[in-house]
Nucleic acid binder design. Structure first.
Length: 189
DNA sequence: AAAGAGATGGTCT
DNA sequence: GACCATCTCTTTT
């Protein structure tokens, strides 16, 4: 279970996205540790009309223009949080949205944070996985590689899928056709 | 099974 | 004041 070096994240978001599949996302928040395997992601960059960075740097999006392997967390529709991994070199506004996980550890914590939901719906959406891991804007801008970081990404040696499902993007109204959503094939998820 | 709508607040014009 | 990188509940086929 090794962290990945920052260099590993310093690529185009569309290139980083499929490589994040099958990596482990771990959080230790509120004294409870939760781990999930990343099974769906979506890339965004500053040339993308649907991206927060399309309009250039602002107070909200500036972490996306910063150093790779940091966390960009924003509030969606006033209710849910969404978590992204910053990609690319400093100065480019790129990140990969984490869209779905498969629970690996801390299932009781996940269930309590998503109380009343069937297991199938614990972490199958960007807002849901943030709730399950206890991620909110207090961890926005966090360095995934900092020592004792409450949120980390780990490589347990599982290779990313050789044939990820590439599909249309979701939840946006512009540039829906850009095939920048990647998912672990159904049999593996 | 699918479609529709409300919740709710930060961000930007 | 409009617009959301969503989720859940309700209503309709």
């Amino acid at each position: 279970m090794d962290p990945l070096p920052r260099r590993w994240y310093e690529t185009e978001a569309a290139e980083l996205a499929p490589r994040l599949l099958d990596k482990l996302l771990a959080s230790t928040i509120g004294g409870r540790r939760v781990v999930g395997r990343i099974i769906e992601v979506e890339a965004y960059d500053e040339s993308d009309p649907a991206s927060h960075t399309f309009i250039g740097p602002t107070a909200r999006n500036n972490v996306m223009f910063g150093s790779a392997a940091h966390l960009y967390v924003y509030l969606s529709y006033g209710i849910h949080h969404c978590a992204n991994v910053v990609a690319g070199p400093v100065g480019r506004g790129q990140a990969v949205l984490l869209r779905a996980l498969r629970p690996i550890d801390g299932l009781e914590t996940i269930r309590s944070r998503r109380s009343g939901r069937p297991d199938r719906e614990l972490t199958d959406g960007p807002g849901k996985l943030c709730a399950a891991l206890g991620i909110d804007r207090s961890v926005n801008g966090l360095d995934l590689l900092a020592t004792n970081s409450p949120v980390t990404i780990l490589d347990d040696g599982t290779a990313p899928p050789t044939n990820p499902v590439v599909g249309p993007r979701i939840g946006i109204s512009k540039a829906v056709d850009t095939p920048w959503r990647f998912r672990v094939p159904p049999n593996k998820s």
